[in-house]
């Protein structure tokens, strides 16, 4: 019985590995494929293309700013909901999902019309993408932080800290945030992956982020797009490993509050 179960589990693991590995291996092989056999042309053309660095730099800048804004906004929201407005939890959850019900083109046209009237200068900077990315990442950050807060019995910890004389700043810095570290890292990871993978908004606003650059390369040079896609996947995986490593180091050996999966 146990042997049969082991065989079943082994088969499942092999299928999963094949499912994920085959496309990646295919991408890798394809990126080295040239008309006259294996070549590094696709990779060298990316590395030598100045547009790659500006696109990467822009995407990373947007990712950093979005992550900071998203974490501040959603941490405050989640704490407020859990401490003061539990009855609004379902509503807030619903609001975070709204973005999936609104087509990106609608979002952009609506926002552009509004901004042209109120602050037309804002459209001249790629930073205009940040609030949109924050909205896009709502659902992921909210859920990651919500799971972290639910795992820590927030209300009782706050009550305990208050009864010991702590004010809100102390409670936030010494009690809440240290116990939300893993959730915060998970939310940051999700936000970064959302920004690094977002294409529609940035192309509609005519800014060349990494996905837009990748699409442009793809139209002229399929191998280059494959190499870029592989780079992005490896970067994301590297980030995931980093998040796990950092959260384990910061956790001091105690159990982690939450695990976030993409």
């Amino acid at each position: 019985m146990r042997t049969r179960r082991h065989i079943g589990l082994g088969a499942f693991v092999i299928i999963v590995i094949v499912f994920f590995a085959v496309p990646l291996i295919s991408l890798l092989v394809f990126s080295f494929t040239g008309a006259d056999g294996p070549t590094l042309d696709a990779w060298s053309s990316i590395v030598e293309n100045p547009g790659f660095y500006s696109a990467l730099g822009l995407s990373l800048t947007l990712a950093a700013l979005t992550t900071i804004a998203s974490l501040i906004l959603m941490t405050a929201t989640v704490l407020w909901v859990h401490l003061r407005a539990m009855h609004l939890r379902a509503l807030v959850e619903g609001i975070t999902l709204l973005v999936f019900a609104i087509p990106a083109i609608t979002l952009v046209i609506g926002a552009t019309g509004l901004l042209l009237g109120l602050a037309p200068w804002a459209l001249g900077s790629p930073l205009i993408l940040v609030p949109f990315y924050v909205v896009l990442s709502f659902a992921f950050t909210y859920r990651a932080l919500d799971a972290g807060v639910r795992a820590m019995d927030l209300q009782t910890l706050v009550d305990a800290a208050q009864s010991l004389g702590a004010g809100w700043t102390t409670i936030l810095l010494r009690v809440i945030l240290p116990n939300l570290r893993t959730a915060l890292l998970g939310a940051a990871f999700l936000t970064i992956t959302v920004v690094l993978g977002e294409y529609v908004l940035s192309s509609l606003f005519l800014y060349e982020t990494l996905p837009v650059f990748m699409a442009e390369i793809g139209t002229a040079e399929a191998q280059g797009a494959a190499a870029l896609a592989l780079l992005t996947v490896l970067f994301t995986w590297g980030l995931l490993v980093l998040v796990s490593f950092v959260s384990r180091r910061l956790g001091g050996g105690r159990p982690q509050m939450t695990v976030v999966t993409t």
């Binding site: 820590m152 019995d153 009782t156 910890l157 009550d159 305990a160 800290a161 009864s163 010991l164 010494r174 009690v175 240290p178 116990n179 001091g252 105690r254 159990p255 509050m257």
Partner: peptide, 13 residues
């Protein structure tokens, strides 16, 4: 006032 809660409420970190 010092308070002790039902579910321990120690700071996990």
């Amino acid at each position: 006032m010092g308070m002790v809660f039902q579910d321990y409420s120690l700071f996990p970190n």
